[in-house]
Simulated assay, not measured.
Amino acid sequence: MNEFSSGDDAVTRAADRLLRVAADRVPCPPVRAVIGTDDVKAAHAVQELPAPRRLAAGGRVTGRRIGFTSPAVQRQPDVEQPDVGVLFADTGVEDGASVPVDEMLQPKVDRGDGTAGPGDPPAALAWLARTARDVGDPLRADTVVLSGALGPMVPAAGGDVFRADITGLGSVPVRFHTSGGEGVPA
């Protein structure tokens, strides 16, 4: 796990802000205003700090995710490098299931064609492996990894259906619905 002082008020404040967002489902200003924009270890600590609380509440880690892997995607939120986060079992979607948009703050879908990606998906995985090692939480053999978007993200709404065709792997459809049922498969 990341190392930071328990007295690091900025990291704790930023992590608490994100936990409130998750609990209340109300967006907050970017945490970079609290921790700054050039302390990568602090940013990773903010992402990792809530994990023990989720684990204590019964959450189960299933993997890691890499975000902002392409230059095109990095320009959208105005960041300069990829980021990494934890995947919990309760955030997964089973094959054929519909995603409830009203349980998300800003549902978005990758609409890229792969040309804006990191050039080689193993390059993104190598970056994650190095970063995870450097912050003291190396990848394990059974870690599920989401290696990042292939292009810019677009908003998703109830009733939307998207499909990714991945050469050599097949197709992955995703359907979004609202609690009123719009978009739920029959």
Rank of each mutant, 00 (worst) to 15 (best):
R130W: 01
D137P: 01
Q76N: 02
P118E: 11
P100I: 01
L139A: 06
V73P: 00
A89W: 00
Q74S: 12
V135A: 09
V161Y: 05
L146T: 12
M104S: 01
V144T: 15
A141N: 10
D83G: 10
P71H: 05
E80L: 08
A97V: 06
A126N: 11
R111T: 15
A132G: 05
V79N: 00
D120W: 13
G92W: 03
L150G: 13
P100Q: 04
T143I: 04
P138Y: 09
P121A: 08
L150K: 07
R140G: 14
K108W: 07
D134L: 13
G151R: 05
E80S: 13
V86L: 10
G119V: 03
T131M: 14
G92Y: 00
V73Q: 04
R133Y: 02
P82L: 02
P138L: 12
G119D: 13
D95E: 14
L105S: 07
A157G: 15
Q74P: 08
P118W: 04
A116Y: 02
A141V: 12
V109W: 05
E103T: 04
V161P: 01
F162S: 07
A156Q: 06
T115Q: 05
Q74W: 08
L128N: 02
T115E: 07
D134Q: 13
S147D: 09
V101D: 01
A116F: 08
A129D: 05
V93W: 06
P107Q: 03
P121N: 09
P77D: 09
Q74M: 15
T115D: 08
V145S: 02
V84M: 15
Q106V: 08
D137K: 04
Q106Y: 08
D137A: 13
D165Q: 13
G114L: 07
A157E: 15
R111N: 06
A97C: 12
D83F: 05
F162L: 11
R111L: 15
P77Q: 12
A132Q: 08
G112P: 10
P118I: 11
L87Y: 00
A123I: 02
L87P: 04
R163F: 01
D113F: 07
G159S: 10
L128F: 01
V145R: 01
D78G: 11
A72Y: 04
V109I: 15
V101K: 06
G119A: 11
T143S: 14
D120K: 02
G112Y: 13
R133F: 00
A129I: 02
L125R: 08
G96C: 04
V144S: 11
G151E: 07
Q81F: 07
A164N: 02
D90N: 03
P77F: 13
P155E: 08
L139R: 08
M153F: 11
R163D: 09
T131W: 10
P100H: 05
V79C: 01
L139K: 09
T143K: 03
G92E: 12
D102P: 09
P77N: 09
K108N: 10
V144M: 14
V109Y: 02
A116V: 11
